[in-house]
Design a protein around this nucleic acid. Structure first.
Lengths: 112, 112
DNA sequence: CTGATATACAACCATTTAGTTGTAGGTTAC
DNA sequence: GTAACCTACAACTAAATGGTTGTATATCAG
């Protein structure tokens, strides 16, 4: 996963409207206009938010007649969560090292 | 946790340099200038990235003499991860509902 | 005290973002 | 076919972002 992809992923999540869209389409299906009706902004603005989420692989669109059905793309969300898990792993690793150092007998060279 | 706080959290993670800073200060201690030496940009630019991470509660700074020591703030990272966990919970809930619907006996009113 | 180091912050610039309105192209209903 | 609806996209604006340089302040070494 490239830096640019990860950038897009977190950038997409850094907006309350977009997070709400993700939550809603995760729970059920919505058309773009169905989503647009929920927010106090223009259709075009919501359409742009949907486009940002799509580029971030957090949702997918599928045409059904004249509507475009928006669905959550579970994998995108999973990838974001795994990245944060990786940071937590680094943290736990460090916590383990500190515990090791503290467990060393006093008088020994702690840094060696 | 307010929308603005969550915005700041994900926004802070949406930059490769800042993610690298988080990873490094999670593994060990760095001063601001110690971090700045790692990247091909001005000290002031790195300082700004550190400020963004601090406002997002992903790191803390502590003055030690003339240096400012940067440390990871585990709680901030945890909060981000929990938010993504919440989305996954919504997903699983939906997956459960779908399984329930599929499990209903054919002939019953599925929508009722 | 002087000089070097570490940080903070203001001012500026280019680019991106989040919103708007307007226009155009398909699809459905009648 | 015509009207209504859904979507796409261009063009514009205001504000935020990511970078720069320059200046000021505090700390440490000698």
């Amino acid at each position: 996963m490239s830096d640019a992809e990860i950038d897009r992923l977190f950038q997409a999540l850094a907006d309350a409207t977009r997070r709400d869209i993700v939550a809603r389409v995760t729970a059920g299906e919505y058309s773009v206009s169905g989503l647009a009706a929920l927010y106090d902004m223009s259709f075009a603005a919501v359409q742009k938010h949907v486009a940002v989420l799509e580029r971030a692989s957090l949702i997918t669109k599928e045409r059904r007649g004249r509507e475009q059905i928006v669905r959550a793309h579970y994998e995108g969300l999973q990838r974001a969560r795994r990245l944060l898990d990786d940071y937590e792993a680094i943290w736990r690793q460090r916590a383990g090292r500190i515990a090791d150092i503290l467990a060393e007998e006093p008088g020994e060279e702690a840094g060696r």
